[in-house]
Nucleic acid binder design. Structure first.
Length: 813
RNA sequence: GCCGGGAUGGCGGAAUCGGCAGACGCAGAGGACUUAAAAUCCUCCAAUAGGGAACUAUUGUGCGGGUUCAAAUCCCGCUCCCGGCACCA
């Protein structure tokens, strides 16, 4: 035992240090070799190596660690790895400022954060560590890119994309939050660029359907569902004789087709130019398009933005009535949703109504509300009975939707169709510190994938970070210039790197076999996947979590993995709040994990984090709170010290304490299973209190059994102190190799129970009765009570409800 | 606007399947120990009213209704807070 100056306290720093060294010496948390035990894959989102852990990290890793430790003790073979999401902008920006190469600063940051994690006493198996920015990792990120390319899931496309002027790179749709860059909060603008995409939309339906079977928080599932945004409707094709072409629109309301009085194209729609070419409207329409394209996306898509439009002078043929209706260009139509064109049904759509009002376009009512009053000054968007709709008159909207869609299909003018809100994932970035896209552009052969044998496409080590002009890669002529792998002619390398979310979409596969000479060993992946428990923040609800699901489905289709979903169970932890606000440098309310560990130790910090709030809720840091956790651990320590100088005692409380012990084991186990860590800690506190209270009446054996159970149960929560006390008790092996305690179910039932007696639902008194008493016996026992008569005051008993072990309700009148 | 989550003492929270509301901790009050303080150990701690006290009664889980012998929990109607999406046709 490491002794401190004070006999009534243990020296937290010395104890924690000692066991950290000892665990490492023994390689205690190594996965070990395959045996009979069931596997358990416990994963926490790996950090970006910014240089220091923050309190959010401390919380996630504490949560993951307690789960890993509990599973290990309860007989699982646990994979609990850690690594680094090490590509990204901050390192590159630092290089621009200070000239230090991103790789050097990243590796230094990793080294430091690793020591912080060791100080936290986290039970990682470091032999599975991965670093996404090292060639031995990104080589396989590139290999997976090529797999996607081969399967037609990686492609280049020109178009208006989100551009962050501050990061000087493009962003995926998921990475734009309310018009701002997710990372730096700069205003995102549109740029026309040719970029690389992953065809995630091909998987939209499966990504939606498979949400069903996941043990994930409702909140996250809902967010993903909304993000995918499935809409059922119909495609409607309007012929345009003028250019001998067809305008295709998507509508969720084919039942209102007879009410369509015009068609609107997005300004970016490919047909706009041809429609007006060489005609008197050409100049005005082109000016309109040019103006609208300058307007930012946020402004364009804000609901209160004025609807603006211009008539093209051209007409389209209504597919069912044959009427010629005007074709407009309008700012309220999005180019990248549906077909980039809509049919205008002003009587039954708010937006069309406002547009039609402004430009004085005709309205046709074709749906009569079947119950409610129809508003006369706005669109009626509900369902009802069709009118003015030819042979569909009198039909209800729901039926008309499918019948009109069927008719369109029959006439080859469209048909039923499903559209998703989600867009393809833009993965190219005009930055240096990422995995280079393994593509060569050859003037003869075009776009050529780099052959597997030539991977990795290494990041050059002589790049200059000026912060000006193109990406550092594009400025390195000797890196860019290469030869075509197919024809040997001179060619240019692709200078874009991949979005760092690509790196993190598959790291949990790499963990299973970190030195595999393929992205991962399919046998290891088959053994370990899916992840049994994934702990992370809510901020990745539709980013990392969606991308990872997509990757898994592609890998499944390629026959490389046997699961269709990567994360079976998800624990989405809340924020760490300090002084009422989310911690941030700008608010000046940050807390450094270093100083907290130094002051209270990591055991107390862990216990407090787990105790103060359920994991999914926000958690408020409090000095007094952590002190309470610290006091609790010292109290356990002092109790354990008593065992060395035991006084002779009766053992009168042994039976009672055996039951308390069984109850505690049951409670803590159940709470850990359902991730109710705060109540598990509270059960340990109650148990400790109970040991204090009954100590004098316990026998030597009773005390010892009671203490050992306490220490084993405490092991996942306060691993250092638990191991210290365990060894004090004379055990040679670490407490973390101990078996999770069992209990005799018989002991959970007390021989006598206290039952509340209610009169008309109000508790009046309590009786102690034998536990095995059945409902009738209980009722009879209570009716014979003198105290009941006192409360009746002459009223008569109408009914007695007796629930054994709980209460008796006597209904009187 | 749509979708999701939530509201329980002075505070964080508990009540797992409709069955004793407030476990556990923090803060607070008191006692023991001490020359004293800290630390520790023990006790009390929802509100209101009566009483010296034990105790007793009433009220009480955001608000208003309902179902039930019994509601923090289920149903209907609201209020407020947090999060996500939002001109997505």
């Amino acid at each position: 035992m490491v002794r401190s100056e004070r006999p009534d306290r243990y020296d937290v720093k010395a104890v924690e240090k000692r066991w950290q060294i000892e665990w490492e010496r023994q390689d205690l948390y190594s996965v070990g070799s395959v045996d009979e035990r069931p596997k358990f894959y416990c994963l926490e989102q790996f950090p970006y190596p910014s240089g220091h852990l923050h309190m959010g990290h401390v919380r996630v890793y504490t949560l993951g660690d307690i789960i890993a430790r509990y599973r290990r003790m309860s007989g699982h073979r646990v994979l609990h790895p850690m690594g680094w999401d090490a590509f990204g902008l901050p390192a590159e920006n630092a290089a621009i400022k200070s000239g230090v190469s991103p790789r050097i600063s990243t590796l230094a940051n990793i080294a430091y954060m690793k020591t912080q994690m060791r100080q936290m006493g986290l039970s990682f198996d470091w032999s599975h560590e991965v670093t996404t920015s090292e060639p031995e990792y990104y080589r396989y990120t590139q290999e997976l890119f090529l797999l996607f390319y081969e399967r037609g899931l990686a492609y280049q496309k020109a178009g208006a994309v989100n551009w962050c002027p501050s990061c000087e790179t493009v962003l995926a749709n998921e990475q734009v939050e309310e018009g701002l860059c997710w990372r730096c909060e700069a205003k995102v603008v549109k740029r026309d660029l040719t970029q690389w995409y992953f065809r995630i939309t091909d998987y939209a339906q499966r990504l939606l359907e498979d949400l069903e079977g996941l043990d994930w928080p409702q909140e996250i599932v809902t967010q993903q569902r909304n993000w995918i945004g499935r809409s059922v409707g119909a495609e409607v094709r309007f012929a345009v004789p003028l250019i001998d072409d067809v305008i295709s629109v998507f509508s969720t309301r084919p039942d209102t087709l007879y009410g369509a009085t015009y068609v609107v194209l997005a300004p970016e729609h490919p047909l706009v130019e041809r429609l007006v070419e060489g005609r008197k409207e050409e100049e005005a329409v082109k000016n309109f398009v040019a103006e609208e394209r300058v307007v930012s996306d946020i402004e364009r898509t804000a609901e209160n933005t004025d609807k603006r439009g211009i008539f093209t002078g051209a007409y389209a043929e209504h597919p069912l009535t044959g009427a010629m209706i005007p074709i407009w260009v309008g700012n309220y139509v999005l180019s990248d949703y549906g077909t980039g064109a809509v049919m205008g049904v002003p009587a039954h759509d708010h937006r069309d109504y406002r547009f039609a009002q402004k430009y004085d376009l005709p309205m046709r009512r074709v749906v009569a509300a079947d119950h409610a009053d129809q508003p006369s000054d706005e669109a009626y968007t509900g369902g009802g009975i069709l009118m003015e709709s030819d042979r569909f008159n009198g039909m209800d909207s729901d039926q008309a939707k499918s019948e009109i869609a069927a008719l369109l299909a029959q006439k080859n003018r469209g048909g039923p169709r499903i559209t998703y809100r989600m867009r393809d994932w833009l993965i190219s970035r005009q930055r240096f510190w990422g995995a280079p896209i393994p593509i060569v552009h050859c003037s003869e052969c075009g776009t050529v994938p780099v052959p597997l044998a030539q991977l990795p496409v290494l990041l050059p080590d002589h790049a200059k970070f000026t912060g000006r002009g193109q990406s550092p890669l594009a400025q390195l002529a000797d890196w860019v210039e290469t030869t075509c792998p197919q024809c040997g002619h001179r060619a240019r390398r692709e200078t874009d790197t991949m979005d760092t979310f690509v790196d993190s979409s598959w790291y949990y596969y790499r963990y299973t076999s970190p030195s595999s000479t393929s992205p991962f060993d399919p046998k290891q992946a088959a053994y370990w996947m899916a992840v049994d428990e994934y702990v992370g923040g809510k901020e990745h609800a539709v980013l990392h979590l969606l991308y990872s699901r997509f990757f898994t489905k592609v890998l499944y289709d390629a026959g490389l993995v046997s699961v269709v979903e990567p994360f079976r169970r998800l624990l989405s932890q809340g924020m760490v709040v300090y002084r009422g606000k989310k911690m941030s440098k700008s608010k000046g309310n940050t807390l450094s994990p270093e100083s907290i560990m130094a002051e209270w130790g990591s055991d107390a910090t862990r216990v407090f984090i787990l105790f103060a709030a359920p994991p999914e809720k926000d958690f408020e840091w409090s000095e007094q709170g952590v002190e309470g956790a610290y006091r609790f651990l010292q109290r356990v320590y002092r109790l354990a010290q008593r065992s060395v100088r035991m006084t002779v005692a009766s053992g009168g409380a042994d039976d009672l304490m055996a039951r308390v012990r069984a109850r505690t084991v049951h409670k803590v186990t159940d709470d850990l299973e359902r991730r109710s860590f705060n109540t598990a800690v509270s059960a340990l506190m109650e148990y400790t209190n109970s040991l204090y209270q009954n100590w004098e009446e316990m026998s030597t054996e009773g005390r010892r059994a009671g203490l050992e159970t306490l220490v084993v149960l405490l092991a996942p929560f306060a691993p250092h102190l638990a191991d210290e006390l365990w060894h004090d008790f004379g055990h040679e092996q670490s407490v973390h190799l101990a078996v999770w305690p069992n209990y005799d179910a018989v002991l959970l039932v007390d021989p006598e129970v206290e039952v509340a007696v209610q009169i008309n639902g109000k508790v009046r008194f309590k009786v102690v009765v034998p536990a095995e008493l059945n409902a009738d016996g209980l009722a009879a026992r209570v009716l014979a009570e003198d105290r009941l008569r006192d409360h009746l005051n002459g009223r008569s008993v109408a009914k007695v409800i007796a629930i054994p072990g709980r209460l008796v309700n006597v209904v009187v009148r």
